[in-house]
Write a protein that binds this DNA or RNA. Structure first.
Lengths: 257, 257
DNA sequence: GGGCCTGATTGACGAAAATCAAGGATGGAT
DNA sequence: ATCCATCCTTGATTTTCGTCAATCAGGCCC
């Protein structure tokens, strides 16, 4: 698949690459592959050597972990996102599998080139550190969410967050199957169904993938959202990295040159 | 408290600082505080602005998260470790509280100095990125452990890991109160007690803080340890960072200059 | 339309975990 | 030594969650 300029520009606009030199960007994207994968494709199996930094340009990707024949969804990525950066930086095995949920356009950048670029372009090294810091904080939020809240509360907060991220409209569409949502929230599909049913008492109406939050105040009293767990930053127009999401609402007081 | 050279050397030996220039190291440690805190001191409250990178030189520190009057232990740190690096890098609020479990000697490095050092010393920026990548992977492991395993399995694997880290002896001592362990493993103290009782059938003998694993094979059959969740790297002599722990057993093929 | 596959829902049941309550051990202080 | 506080343990109970099974709805192919 040919890599067009429009695609390159979207990658360039990512915070991870926004500040680096043109030369660095050329070096990193020079030998890159842009590939289109059908839905359900396993891009990377946990335990595999990681040779590429992946950039999701279009579609939907699920990161999942496995143990003892059980699997759990650790994250669902939407464009434009990079993934498995940590494994690339350390040249280590991947700890999660990655698979496409929808047909996806994915850019694959050589891991070795990334590591070389970190050495040659200091500002790129900083950008990597900031992106990883953002990813780290996202996981801290996820872990607190998982350990401190029950299933019903996790779902309620998910819906509140989702509504805000999708523009604030009371009615919105779930971005993927409920089974995936259940796994992401750490529950079984059956329990997710029951949780949705319970939320009817709190003004949540469900119609297939359509959800409307009729009484946000009532739902929030149940959910008790917390800025130290839930990141309610709305999705701005352009591509954002994990780091930017974590900086909000304090807009980068000490912007790194 | 005066900062002695021996303390500085231990910090210098951390992977985070091992590769940076003498000048960078001086800049970062120049205005640093070394302070001794009694047990039970809250060093940092979640939501607080983070002004320092903390380095635990001696003692024991707990990182915890709170929501809705519940709290959970996210990590227990032993010397020599740095913490809240991610918040420092992004100049953001802390997502976790930090408190001493034992009396602890803690070095506090100016966050602003750390961020400046990243800009001025490329190799330091890389070291920060690697350390954060290691922290990230540690959290991925924790999350998989939490979502995929039950309480009994988490305890079993904790014991197996702990034994290896403390030298491999069948008998070892828990590093802190069981209540903290329970919170770390995501269960109540009551359930931890019961889990210990159950593990008696698998050859685990408990006597206060002393644990002996009499039949490792039997315990492992229950625990099903997995290198993609459990990091069994033994504690080497010198100070290690989160990044190094994640590189093992592959010893840093592409060492960054 | 008729079958068929997949995903979602619902109910019944059992396992796991939290909660409530009561003892027991330990170590420190007086 | 006695008292007391803290931590740990144990039991009884409730709640939550997972599992098994059946049913239902929608999409798709023939």
């Amino acid at each position: 698949m040919p890599m067009r300029d429009t695609e390159l520009e979207r990658v360039r606009a990512l915070p991870l690459f926004a500040e680096c030199s043109d030369e660095t960007f050329r070096n990193v994207t020079g030998g890159a592959f842009l590939q289109r994968f059908p839905a359900g494709t396993t891009l990377l199996l946990e335990g595999d050597q990681v040779d590429f930094l992946y950039v999701l340009l279009d579609g939907l990707v699920e990161l999942e972990g496995t143990w003892n024949d059980k699997e759990t969804t650790l994250s669902v990525l939407r464009p434009v996102s990079t993934f498995i950066l940590a494994a690339v930086v350390l040249d280590a095995d991947g700890l999660m599998s990655a698979r496409t949920i929808e047909r996806s356009d994915i850019l694959m950048l050589s891991g070795e080139a990334i590591r070389r670029a970190m050495r040659e372009d200091a500002s790129f090294g900083i950008a990597v550190a900031q992106e990883l810091a953002g990813c780290y904080r996202g996981l801290v939020r996820t872990l607190k969410n998982q350990k401190l809240r029950g299933g019903l509360e996790r779902l309620a907060n998910y819906l509140i967050t989702q509504r805000l991220r999708l523009g604030g409209d009371p009615t919105f569409t779930l971005p993927h199957e409920k089974r995936v949502l259940a796994s992401l929230l750490g529950m079984t599909p059956e329990n997710l169904s029951r949780a949705f049913a319970t939320l009817a008492d709190y003004g949540v109406e469900v119609n297939g993938p359509q959800v409307t939050i009729a009484r946000p105040v009532v739902l929030e009293r149940l959910a008790k959202p917390d800025p130290l767990i839930d990141n309610h930053q709305p999705v701005s127009g352009g591509p954002t990295g994990k780091a930017q999401r974590e900086r909000w609402p304090r807009p980068a007081s000490s912007k790194v040159a």
